[in-house]
Computed example of a mutant assay.
Amino acid sequence: MNSADYRSTLHDYAMPAEWQPHLATWISWPHNQDSWPGKFGPVEPVMVQAVAALAASEPVYINVLDAAHEKHVAALLEGHASAGRVKFHRFPTNDAWCRDHGALFVTGRAAGAEPLLALNFGFNAWGGKYPFELDNAIPPQMAATLGVPCVTVDMVLEGGSIDVNGAGTLLTTEQCLLHPNRNPNMTQADIEQALQDHLGVQQILWLGDGIVGDDTDGHVDDLTRFVSADTVVTVIEQDPTDDNYTVLGENRERLAKMQLHDGRPLQVIELPMPKAVEYKGDRLPASYANFYIGNSVVLMPSFNDPNDAVNAGILSNAFPDRKIIPIDCTDLVLGLGTFHCLTQQVPAPPG
């Protein structure tokens, strides 16, 4: 399918919510030690825990650099995740953040539409902050592996900058999508139209700024996430002296006023933030909102904090049909992201 064909049938496709059934979860195995300076050692064991939890109910596809890297990762996973549930792809990347450099998938919702289609948005490493040429080449490789059409979209967009409810609404932030380092020639109206056209949504809800330490310019997946068609969880800071207090309070006020496109109020559940996580004096973007919803589990970042248990309970109530898996991300977050940033779901085609 070429871009012209796709644009003529945009209304036939939509991006499913993350909790809808997955064909697989895709990750790019961490390898760039510059992202975890002096602390790369703990990263791979955390990833082993994550893959083992996911592989219990869905295949996990893993991008690796080459044959030697594949052998290394396979040895780490041995005895933790069934080899039959893990598939390696020798697709080299600059870094591990598959949420942002991977393909975004939409599914057909009308007769004659492709069941599954990959969208290849542009990726520029969050405004040119890091090398990205290998990462930007990943979406077509993912599509080819799956045997699905791939459509290139002339717009920079990272998966972590958006969240959808699978029922016509998308949530994002002004700090990220309106930042001039992404799409300087697009107005807010242009961006909204592109999101509606390509992701099959009817409504865009805008939050303001992101949390301190987030070098992605305010990704929404560190702030607020849909947990059902009409409900979000959102992080809040209870300490008025904390640097995140004001910005999270302002976003909470916005959420309180939001309605869905059918006029229903948006339901909001609060997730209290952990105490500040720092490394060599720098604040890291530790957030409970960066969880990942698998077919039978929710991978929840934990931070050796009293609020770990509080948030596990909140997410358990939000996802009663899934097991909440808290995994210590105190070291992992040095890379400036956790489980949602490191994963990309491949939705199961309808039917």
Rank of each mutant, 00 (worst) to 15 (best):
G122S: 11
P131R: 12
Y130R: 13
G122A: 12
A113M: 01
R109V: 05
N124E: 06
L119G: 01
L146C: 06
W126D: 13
A113V: 02
H101S: 07
P139H: 07
E114Y: 08
E133G: 15
L116V: 10
N124P: 11
G128E: 11
D100F: 09
Y130W: 13
I138T: 10
R109C: 04
A113E: 02
P131A: 08
A137L: 10
E133N: 15
G127K: 10
F105S: 00
W126M: 15
V106M: 05
A110F: 00
P131K: 06
R109K: 09
L104D: 03
E114D: 07
R109E: 04
L104T: 15
D100K: 11
F132S: 08
P139E: 09
G122F: 06
E133Q: 14
F105C: 00
F132K: 10
A113G: 01
F121M: 04
N136K: 15
L146D: 02
A137R: 12
L119N: 00
D135M: 11
F105D: 00
A125K: 05
L146H: 05
A144S: 10
A110I: 02
P140A: 05
A103S: 02
N120E: 14
F123A: 08
T145L: 14
P131V: 02
I138A: 03
N136W: 06
T107F: 01
V106H: 05
A125M: 15
G102C: 07
L116I: 08
Q141Y: 05
A110C: 04
G122Y: 07
A137K: 15
E133H: 15
W126T: 13
D135G: 09
G102I: 09
Q141E: 12
G128F: 10
A137W: 14
H101G: 01
A143Y: 03
L146G: 03
A113R: 05
M142E: 08
G102V: 07
A143W: 00
G147I: 10
H101W: 04
A125Q: 14
F123C: 14
N120R: 11
P140K: 04
L119R: 00
A143T: 07
G147T: 09
F132M: 08
E114H: 12
Y130F: 13
M142G: 00
T145S: 11
W126L: 14
E114S: 10
L104K: 09
L146I: 02
G112D: 06
E133L: 13
L117E: 00
F105Q: 00
P140Q: 02
